[in-house]
Amino acid sequence: MMANLYFDESIRDNGAFIIGAIVISEEDLSSRIRAEWESMGLNPNDDEYKSSAIKAKNEVSVKQREFISYLVHSSKLALAVLPNHDRRQLGNYCAALVLQLLDTNKLRNESHELYVDENVFIDKNIKTRLEDSKVNLYLNTDSKLEAGIQLADHASHALGGMLLEEMGIVKKQVRAGENSGYHPDEMLDLGFELWASLRYALIGNNQYIEGLSPPPDDPANPFFMVDGYGLYIAGSCSEELAAAAKKRFGINYLGCIH
């Protein structure tokens, strides 16, 4: 079945990296988001969710975030990591991630729709490769009109925060809250909370991982290899950035964390 792919990025100058996120769904999430904003009394042609917007004391923005988070968690998620000095190649790395998903059969060999946020460019020869792979490309897309991009904005922002924490650049704790599996007042690292909420969306391959996994034929194997499937690391990354990205995102654990 055809999938809708929505791409946006988070630029983290304090970590000297960029994370591009693709949110994938068989459903037209743009129409669903726009309808939700209308039900909240917003005009979807003017009002959109921005991860960078201040949420404190803004009840509408908080409700938007909750809805966006819900949709991301119920979709699939892939990411590309690159150094910020390589920003002009962002679109090409987005395309490389899509082609990687196709090559590893994490996207079916069918027609797909790829919506890319504004001011992201892809080389002509790489566009041709996408077209040959039956990916219909929509560049310079307005995230208000194609509102699924707002999901990728949220996802890339969260993933960027996780990588900053992995690199030791930021350190923030938040209350566990109700229905978290922990005492509501227990303080958790923000990166852990973000990972816990996104881990089921990340695309990977359930496989034997030496030193971590049960035997390869164990159906209870809780480990997914994300690197090389739903994680694309640009060759221009420094060794330190690539290592941090692999450590944070490369292997995903789907077992109990409580």
Rank of each mutant, 00 (worst) to 15 (best):
N84G: 02
Q207S: 07
P219M: 09
N252I: 12
I257S: 06
S61E: 12
S143R: 02
G235H: 15
K127M: 08
L159V: 01
R32G: 04
D153S: 06
L137E: 04
D185R: 09
I257C: 04
Q89Y: 09
S180Y: 15
S51V: 04
L130M: 04
F67D: 03
S52K: 04
N205P: 05
I209M: 10
V60P: 03
K57I: 03
S238C: 06
E239P: 00
C94F: 15
I33L: 12
G204V: 11
F67N: 02
K246F: 13
S74F: 15
L231S: 11
L139H: 04
N136C: 12
E166F: 14
Q64P: 05
I11T: 10
G255W: 00
E193G: 10
K247P: 04
D13C: 05
C256G: 05
T128V: 14
A56E: 13
D28I: 08
G211C: 00
R108K: 07
D153E: 09
S133K: 07
V174A: 11
G211D: 02
H183I: 06
D47Q: 07
D123A: 12
G160V: 09
L190G: 04
N45A: 15
M162K: 03
W37T: 03
S31L: 12
G15Q: 14
D28Y: 13
Y253P: 04
I19R: 00
C94K: 07
T104G: 00
K57T: 03
P215T: 14
K134S: 13
V60M: 13
F224G: 00
L107C: 11
K57S: 10
R87E: 15
L101P: 00
M167R: 07
S61W: 12
L145W: 13
A152D: 04
S111G: 01
H112I: 06
E165K: 10
N206R: 07
S74C: 13
V116P: 09
L164N: 06
W195G: 07
A158K: 11
G191E: 13
F67M: 03
L42Q: 07
N136S: 14
M1F: 02
